[in-house]
Write a protein that binds this DNA or RNA. Structure first.
Ligand SMILES: [Mn+2]
Ligand SMILES: [Mn+2]
Ligand SMILES: [Zn+2]
Ligand SMILES: [Zn+2]
Lengths: 155, 155
DNA sequence: CCGGCAAATGCAACACTGTTGCATTAGTGG
DNA sequence: CCACTAATGCAACAGTGTTGCATTTGCCGG
């Protein structure tokens, strides 16, 4: 069983985590890997069901919550609530890919779909308010959840 | 004890409910009254804590959920999720009052604040998608929840 | 290569939000 | 006033997220 040098097989997720100034743990690396690979924001439940990688034990439910919180706290992940009231997480940086268009959120399945339209500019805020995020969301039923059929590609 | 005619002391909420074609019950009237009087969308928890009116018993938790669902189903109330993932309900005509401007949602306290800016127009949707609602939301910390001070009036 | 310490984990128990089943009650139309 | 259906109350449950605490582990200095 050959063992390559540690630095060589270090993943980008590990480097990001180390650079963020928090401990590099298996849980954090696996979760950030999953977030970076995801094509859309993932819920806690979806991540809990992740395939347990190479022989790794499944991650504990509470630890997963804490791992996600820590990634959000150090700026590596973003947390948002979907139309059903469930939190979804995405890798920070992944949102730059979705910055130039707006999104459709299905109120039935919680799915997020990219639309071909530009987002409007942010408004001015009253004194004391701290802007964090601007979301122009279009809600309704996606093609798959409508009484009709055939759904386009997801976000 | 004088008893005025039923039609005379009939509330507007009762009329709205009757006109919607569902049974007029004490629960529905009380809840719709509360929603119509509210200055911002109310959560289930907030409504459960409502003062029990004139000698009326407190409304059952499950019944409150079902009353809210029925009001939404017959178009008298609107349901939306707040930044903390909790559903909030508003009376259906109340949103016309907020149709000509956009809103700021505090990610800390869940509060909704009116801004002086017009909402952008709705985009075109792919085939099979059913538009239900367009939301242009600005998120962040309100003046009260910011490290600083003094908060403006609420939605 | 070792300790040692703080941070992270695993587990149990809990809180909050929302749902389902079912027997009972109450609104409505005749 | 009756009967029929919709709505209610209660109990039990499911899903999501949190807290406390004992144990383990990443990381750093020696
Ligand atoms: Mn997108
Ligand atoms: Mn408003
Ligand atoms: Zn859908
Ligand atoms: Zn606030």
């Amino acid at each position: 069983m050959v063992r390559a040098s540690a630095t060589a097989e270090e993943s980008l997720s590990s480097e990001l985590i180390r650079a963020a100034g928090v401990k590099v743990t298996r849980g954090r690396v696996r979760v950030l890997d999953a977030l970076r690979a995801a094509r859309q924001p993932l819920s806690h439940a979806e991540m809990e069901a992740l395939p347990a990688g190479a022989g790794d034990a499944a991650i504990d439910r509470v630890t997963l919550y804490r791992v996600l919180d820590s990634l959000v706290a150090c700026g590596l992940a973003l947390k948002a609530v979907d139309t059903r009231g469930v939190f979804r997480f995405s890798a920070a940086g992944a949102q730059r890919r979705h910055a130039d268009h707006i999104h459709f959120r299905c109120t039935d399945c919680g799915g997020v779909f990219c639309l071909k339209a530009e987002p409007p500019p942010p408004p001015k805020l009253p004194r004391g308010f701290r802007l964090n995020e601007v979301a122009y969301d279009v809600r309704g039923l996606c093609a798959g959840c409508s009484p009709h059929a055939a759904s386009p590609a997801r976000a």
